[in-house]
């Protein structure tokens, strides 16, 4: 099978291994050490490391710079790119720059709106002018056009074709629920090679959406990695259930975390169960495992899940 970009993530998936990606959020400052600290904890544990692009619309070290730091430290980054801050000219320029730096996994997403961001704790930039020149679907198409045709979106030729393994996001449980699988199909048609989903806690509901994706043949055309965020307290799950669109947390799970004498240990247990449950679903090719700002929990979880060591490819 010919590879699109030959990244480790792509090779792991191509070889039929159960893939594992995680996330490294860049710092709100120019601190290389902050990135390297997370890198040291996570090195060797995953096949790809998402580097977020000013997530929650809060200014952080750029995704491309953070990705390059990871790459140099021996971790394979998945550089996220949102449509919020750049027009198609800047995006393509940054994509060429990313390719020149050796970054080949790109995740194309709409991005948190500047008016809804800042996580409620920081000021953010609600007065910023959002760009949204193109949407995530169109960005996927543009990246594919650059890679496969060697063409810019405007039709001009590139001097050579950048190799990208193209990722996209999927919110399987957001309304309008009947359109979510069709939207996934559009992303696949646009060129998404792999998919990371919004955090999944309601396995039953996710399984139904996944079954539709499998029926439509999408799970063969793209590699779907359900998102799992390590729960650390009932409060955290409640917050996500109420405030993070597309995240549905069963009350039973919230109750279980509430009753736990050691919520952190219970959260790890829940995470291991979730990994096992999604792994059994037809069409699931891996997991996108996150422990937001608690990366130190991941090595133990990954070991216990039997996902370590990562396959050599």
């Amino acid at each position: 099978m010919s590879l699109r970009a030959g990244t480790k993530l792509e090779k792991v998936l191509a070889a039929g291994h159960f893939a594992l990606t995680t996330e490294v959020g860049p710092p709100r400052g120019p601190d290389v050490d902050a990135v390297l600290k997370k890198a040291r904890i996570l090195k060797g544990l995953a096949d790809g490391y998402n580097v977020t692009d000013n997530q929650t619309a809060v200014v952080r070290m750029s995704s491309i710079a953070g990705s390059k730091i990871l790459l140099d430290a021996g971790l394979e980054p998945v550089a996220q790119m949102t449509c919020r801050d750049r027009n198609r000219i800047a995006m393509q320029s940054d994509l060429l720059g990313a390719a020149a730096l050796g970054l080949r996994n790109i995740l194309a997403i709409s991005g948190d709106h500047q008016g809804a961001g800042a996580s409620g704790k920081l000021k953010g930039h609600p007065g910023a002018k959002g760009v949204y020149d193109v949407d995530s679907m169109q960005l996927i198409s543009i990246i594919k056009g650059m890679r496969d045709e060697g063409l810019q979106a405007g039709g001009d030729a590139l001097t050579s074709k950048p190799a990208f393994f193209i990722g996209a996001a999927w919110t399987p449980l957001g309304p309008p629920i009947e359109f979510r699988v069709l939207r996934l199909a559009k992303k696949v048609a646009a060129g998404a090679d792999f998919i990371q989903t919004q955090a999944v806690y309601d396995i039953k509901a996710f399984a139904q959406q996944m079954a539709k994706a499998v029926d439509m043949g999408l799970a063969e055309k793209t590699a779907i990695l359900p998102g799992i965020i390590v729960p650390r307290s009932a409060g955290m799950l409640n917050y996500m259930n109420n405030n993070v669109p597309g995240v549905v947390v069963p009350q039973e799970l919230i109750g279980r975390m509430k009753d736990a004498s050691d919520p952190q240990a219970e959260g790890i247990k829940v995470t291991l169960e979730l990994i096992e449950q999604v792994r059994e679903l037809p069409g699931v090719k891996g997991v996108h495992l996150q422990a937001i700002e608690a990366e130190e929990l991941l090595p133990e979880i990954i070991n216990q899940a039997g996902l370590s060591p990562r396959p050599e490819v």
Partner: peptide, 17 residues
Amino acid sequence: CAKSLMNGPCGGTRTDG
């Protein structure tokens, strides 16, 4: 649409739509 999306809803649709 807050993001002027042309290809369907983003992940930011609340549970109540």
